[in-house]
Nucleic acid binder design. Structure first.
Length: 254
DNA sequence: ATGACGAGTGCTACCTAGGA
DNA sequence: TCCTAGGTAGCACTCGTCAT
């Protein structure tokens, strides 16, 4: 099967400082992180796995990552530790990602700041990021861990196909793909590692807010403290979210 | 017939506890 | 020590119901 793939000029742009993830006015919505040089041609049966990290977080960026690998090397990915990222301890993820990179896989991540999440819905942002990854890492087959409910999967796949130029038949949007597909599992790990790196950088700038998830007591304490001291929300916060709106209720601050 | 709204469903994440 | 399950948090989408 012969397919044409466009390459996006300017991909591989310099990494934007982490503070951009906070979303100051005028900052770009999608920040491409050049983890690997662009791939110029599809030379073999290749698979691009795509997954995201930070969807449920209230502080910090959403990261969507892609891992491009030759189909024949998928079993090797599994051996290197590409599996359900939730089962990989945080401290072991970086080593696993490095091992995957050494195996010849190529990776790239799109970092979406909190301000963009405030302006647009998560699904449209993830779609845009997936399109960017498909264009940057051309592959014969693309497997995406579904960011939408099962009834919306055909619509998501169709939109990805239309906007990327890749045939629908080459795109699989699958539930639990991060668990079942090695390339998606690797992408999931990369997304988490990149997000962790951004969070650590943001902590140096904005103070220790944990990992940014509402279920963390540290996150709520951080938000209450910031709000009490400054009367505003930190720029790395997704202000639309309910837990944040709840905090803005005067009663809860007493 | 049409539009608004809420419930149900399904996806993500992390943390914690318990068992192998 | 590692893995798994459960709990809690988020959002988006679809569909049924009800009012206009």
């Amino acid at each position: 099967m012969v397919r044409s793939h466009r390459r996006v000029p300017g991909r591989g742009a310099p990494r934007v400082p982490p503070q951009a993830a906070g979303g100051r006015a005028g900052s770009c919505d999608l920040v491409a992180v050049a983890a690997q040089p662009p791939v110029l041609a599809v030379s073999a049966a290749t698979v691009l796995g795509i997954d995201e990290a930070g969807r449920g977080a209230v502080l910090g960026p959403l990261v969507v990552a892609g891992i491009l690998v030759k189909e024949e090397r998928l079993p090797e990915l599994r051996k290197l530790g590409a599996r359900d990222s939730k089962l990989v301890p945080r401290e072991g993820r970086l080593a696993t990602v490095r091992a995957i990179a050494r195996s010849g896989a190529r990776g790239r991540a799109v970092v979406i700041p909190a301000s963009a999440v405030d302006r647009e819905n998560l699904t449209s942002l993830e779609l845009a990021a997936a399109v960017a990854l498909v264009l940057a890492l051309p592959a014969i087959e693309v497997v995406v861990d579904t960011p939408v409910g099962p009834r919306a999967i055909p619509q998501f796949a169709s939109a990805l196909s239309t906007r990327s130029g890749l045939p629908c038949a080459a795109i699989s949007v699958l539930p639990r793909a991060d668990r079942d597909h090695p390339a998606v599992a690797a992408a999931s790990l990369l997304a988490k590692v990149v997000r962790d790196g951004y969070v650590l950088a943001l902590r140096r700038q904005f103070g220790d807010f944990g990992w940014g998830y509402p279920s963390e007591p540290r996150v709520r304490d951080y938000l209450v403290s910031w709000l009490t001291e400054r009367g505003t929300l930190p720029p790395i916060c997704r202000t639309r979210w309910k837990c944040v709106q709840d905090l803005l209720s005067p009663r809860l601050l007493e």
